[in-house]
Simulated scan of single mutants.
Amino acid sequence: MQLKPIHQQVVVIVGASSGIGRDTALKFAQRRAKVVVAARSEPGLKSLVEEIQALGGEAVYVVADVSDFQQVKAIADQAVAKYGRLDTWVNAAATGIIAPFEKITPEEFKQVVDVTLMGQVYGVMAALPYLKQEGRGALILISSMEGRRSLPLQSPYSAAKHGLEGFLDALRVELQYEKWPISVTSILPSTINTPYYNKVGTKIGVKPSGIPPYYSASLVADAILYAAEHPTRDYVVGDAGKLLDLLQRISPPLTDSLLQVVGFTGQYTAQAKSEDDPNNVFTPISGYDRVEGDFGKLTIPSFLDAIDLNPSIKRGAIALAALGIAAFLGAWANLGSRE
């Protein structure tokens, strides 16, 4: 499967007014892609398009609520009307509520799922006909490590991300069976320093936090741009997420025990916040149309991501690991023969 170079692409980024989506839009524009950005926050989109244009890039925006299919379809329609085609669709829109399950209302749970899962499903429904019309392309959906390992106090968000992983697995096989050269990628970030934790709802009495360590949004944006040119099934961003994924595969009960220790206190800050304070669960809120969040001091580098993004280094690391395993097995066999 061959994807176009980024500078030849028309790219839609949904959920682009802040955080991962905003950084991704800027990086696509810097690589000379034509960019269509969408979100609920018109001020955030306007400032983003102005920033892209100031860099010499080309971009337009569409205001849309991803929980409404017709509004999502309008994003794809307007992208094609403006630029004549669609090559890559990126969906980063999400919301959440940090609270014990019993404190979450049915309406709140449904809204988180409608935005965080159904918004992505609607995006694929809207984009896929245009990608097939073009004859190739990429669907890049921002999932989460919570799509593989749920966290306490985040049941609706975790449920939505698990649902997204199931949807993408089914979709990917259908497209492969029909022999469509359309890449389907799930990006699974660890805890990322974005304004997400400023904007989501909370019923724990304080401003919520992700479980540290944090990673930069630029790591996720780099993974998205990589997947836009290199067909990739899934990509876990952040060393901590890779470790959590491995631990979950080895022993879910052990992971349960670990999260009982760090999964509750790790999501609390010392800053009081009422459940009545503004949040973006049902409507956008102003003041957070930026890439970075408030946890820069807790942000660390991710060493394994550098390997994942560099095929030559990755091949070398795999070869080195294989040699190490072979040497270990050889030594073990020699030891056994001596006995």
Results as ranks from 00 to 15, higher is better:
Leu188Ser: 06
Val115Asp: 04
Met1Thr: 14
Asp114Cys: 13
Phe282Glu: 09
Ala99Ile: 10
Asp277Asn: 10
Tyr235Ala: 08
Gly210Phe: 07
Phe109Asp: 09
Ile98Tyr: 13
Thr232His: 13
Ser17Ile: 07
Ile204Glu: 04
Phe328Ile: 12
Asn334Val: 03
Gly205Trp: 04
Pro181Val: 10
Thr283Lys: 12
Asp277Thr: 12
Asp239Ile: 08
Ser143Tyr: 04
Ala76His: 05
Gln260Asn: 10
Ser251Lys: 01
Asp294Arg: 07
Leu247Thr: 00
Lys314Gly: 09
Phe69Met: 13
Tyr215Gln: 08
Pro156Ser: 08
Val60Tyr: 09
Asp276Met: 04
Lys179Asp: 01
Lys273Gln: 13
Gly119Lys: 03
Pro189Met: 09
Ser251Asn: 05
Ser67His: 07
Ala160Asp: 03
Asp305Gly: 13
Val184Arg: 14
Met145Thr: 13
Glu51Leu: 15
Asn279Lys: 11
Ile325Ser: 01
Val80His: 09
Ser186Asn: 14
Ile6Lys: 01
Pro301Phe: 12
Asp114His: 12
Val36Gln: 06
Ala25Trp: 05
Tyr122Ser: 07
Ser190Tyr: 06
Leu164Ser: 09
Leu141Val: 12
Lys73Ala: 15
Pro156Glu: 01
Ala126Trp: 03
Asp276Arg: 09
Gly293Met: 06
Ala54Ile: 15
Gly119Asn: 04
Ala33Leu: 03
Ala317Glu: 01
Ala54Trp: 11
Lys46Ser: 12
Arg290Pro: 13
Ala270Trp: 12
Ser47Pro: 15
Leu48His: 04
Tyr268Pro: 03
Glu134Lys: 00
Glu50Cys: 14
Tyr196Thr: 12
Val80Tyr: 06
Ala92Asn: 15
Thr95His: 11
Asp68Asn: 14
Ile97Arg: 04
Ser337Lys: 14
Pro212Lys: 01
Ile52Glu: 08
Leu141Gln: 12
Ser150Arg: 12
Asn334Cys: 09
Val60Met: 15
Ile300Cys: 10
Pro252Arg: 08
Pro311Val: 07
Ala160Thr: 05
Leu26Asp: 09
Leu254Ala: 00
Phe109Val: 12
Ala333Met: 01
Ile204Phe: 02
Ala319Asn: 00
Ser190Asn: 10
Tyr268Met: 10
Asp65Lys: 05
Asp222Phe: 03
